[in-house]
Design a protein around this nucleic acid. Structure first.
Lengths: 209, 209
DNA sequence: TCGTGGCTTGACCAAATGGTAAAAAACATC
DNA sequence: GATGTTTTTTACCATTTGGTCAAGCCACGA
C-alpha cells in the first residue's frame, strides 16, 4: 500500500511510483475540475492518465483519496501568493503585487481554480477541515496586517476581509467562468490582457488613500 | 406527453400538472445546485420532490430535460436586474441600484446562483446556446449604454464589459462561495450586511467621475 | 541469471443509475 | 355510476460505476 498516508515506515517512493502518481493527479485535475467530484468517474481519470483502473487503485485507495490528495497537494501552492505578502513592504505595492500574482495564476492555472471552485460551491464537504486549519489562520493573519496598514493611514480604510474576498472574486472569475467570458468577449487573448489592467486599476483606485 | 415543448396542440396543463412540475423543478434546483448536473441523481430529485422516479419521468422526458427546463425557467429571472437598467436614469444611480439588486438576489436566491455557477464552471455544455442568444444581446446592449454614459462624462471611463464582469464576480461570490465565506467570517448575518455596504462603496468609488 | 517484490492486468462483482412497460388507481365527464 | 383520460405505482432492465482479487509480468539487486 504505497499510498497510505499513515505513518512511520514509509519507504521512499520509486521512480515508477512518482511518475504514475503524478500522471494520476494530473489526469484527476483535468477530470475533477471539469465535472466536480461526483460527476467525475474513475474510468475517465484512468483513461486520461493512461493507466488501467485497477492499476490506478493500486496507487490510491479510492476515488475520494485521489480527490483529497489532489486538493492537499495544491492547497499550499494556491495560497502561496497570499502567504508571500510582506509586512515590511510598501502596503499599496504589496497588495497590488498580490493581485497581479493572483491574476497570473488564474490565467496560468485555470484547472486548479475550477477544482477549488467546484469543491467550494458544492459545500466544500471534503476540505472544510483544510479551510479551517490552513486557510483561516492565513486569512486572519493577513487581515490583521492589512488592518494595521490601514490604521497607519497607508491604505484607504475598509474591511480587510471583504477586501480579500473582492480580490478573490475578481481574479478567479476569469478562470472559473471562462466559458461565459468567452461567449461575451470572444477575443480571449485581448480579454485576458485588458482584464489584468482593469482589475489592477480598480484596486489601485480603491486602495489609494 | 405533457412535457414536450414542441408546438401547436399543447393542451393547457391541469392543476396537478402545474403543482407537480413546480415541485420537481424546485427539488431539481436543490439537487442540481448542490451537486452539478452529473453529480445529481434522479432518485435524489424524486425524493426531494416527494414523487416516485417513474412519476417524475412522466412529467419530464429525462434528467437533461429537467435541467434544461430549470435553466430556461430561471434565465430571465436571473437577468432581470440587468435588463431593468434604465437608459434615461441617472447613470451612477442606475448602476448602483443594479449592483444592489444583484447583491439582494445573491442573498435571497443562492441556489439559483450556484446552479448557474456549476453549469458555467463545467463549461456550460447545456446552455451555451442560451448564453449566445439571450445573455449576449443583453450584455452588448448594456455595454453600449454604459459606454455612452462614460463618453458623456457621467461615469469614470473604463471597459464596460469588464465593469459588468466585476459586478457579477463580486455579487455572486457571496452566494457561490458561501461555504468558504462562512468559514472565514463565521457571523454570516453580519457578513452579509457588511458585504453589501462594502461592495456598494467599492463601486461608487470606482465609478464616480 | 535467477529470484523476489513491486507493478500491472483481466475477469469479475455488487450497488447505483437512468430509464421503460404495463397495470392499477384516481379523476373527470357525462 | 359507467366511461374515457390522466396520474401513479410496481416491477423491471441495461448500463455504468466504484472497487476487488488472483494471477502474471518485469525490473533490479544478489
Amino acid at each position: 500500500m504505497p499510498q497510505t498516508a499513515t505513518a512511520q515506515p514509509e519507504k521512499k517512493p520509486s521512480r515508477i511510483q512518482l511518475r504514475n502518481r503524478r500522471k494520476i493527479l494530473d489526469a484527476a485535475l483535468d477530470v475533477f475540475s471539469q465535472h466536480g467530484f461526483r460527476g467525475a468517474t474513475l474510468d475517465q481519470i484512468a483513461e486520461a492518465a493512461g493507466l488501467s483502473k485497477p492499476n490506478m487503485l493500486y496507487y490510491f485507495d479510492s476515488k475520494e483519496a485521489i480527490h483529497v490528495a489532489l486538493l492537499n497537494a495544491l492547497m499550499d501552492e494556491w495560497l502561496a501568493p497570499l502567504a508571500v505578502m510582506d509586512p515590511d513592504g510598501i502596503p499599496l505595492d504589496e497588495l497590488l503585487a498580490y493581485i497581479d500574482r493572483k491574476m497570473e495564476m488564474s490565467r496560468a492555472f485555470p484547472r486548479e481554480s475550477r477544482l477549488f471552485a467546484n469543491e467550494i460551491i458544492q459545500g466544500a464537504p471534503r476540505i472544510l477541515q483544510d479551510l479551517e486549519h490552513r486557510l483561516k489562520p492565513l486569512f486572519d493573519e493577513k487581515c490583521r496586517l492589512i488592518r494595521t496598514w490601514m490604521e497607519e493611514g497607508k491604505l484607504a480604510p475598509m474591511d480587510p476581509g471583504h477586501l480579500i474576498f473582492s480580490i478573490w472574486a475578481m481574479t478567479q472569475h476569469y478562470a472559473d467562468f471562462e466559458a461565459q467570458v468567452q461567449v461575451l468577449m470572444p477575443d480571449t487573448h485581448a480579454a485576458q490582457e485588458s482584464a489584468r489592467t482593469h482589475v489592477a486599476k480598480m484596486f489601485r483606485n480603491l486602495l489609494s488613500v
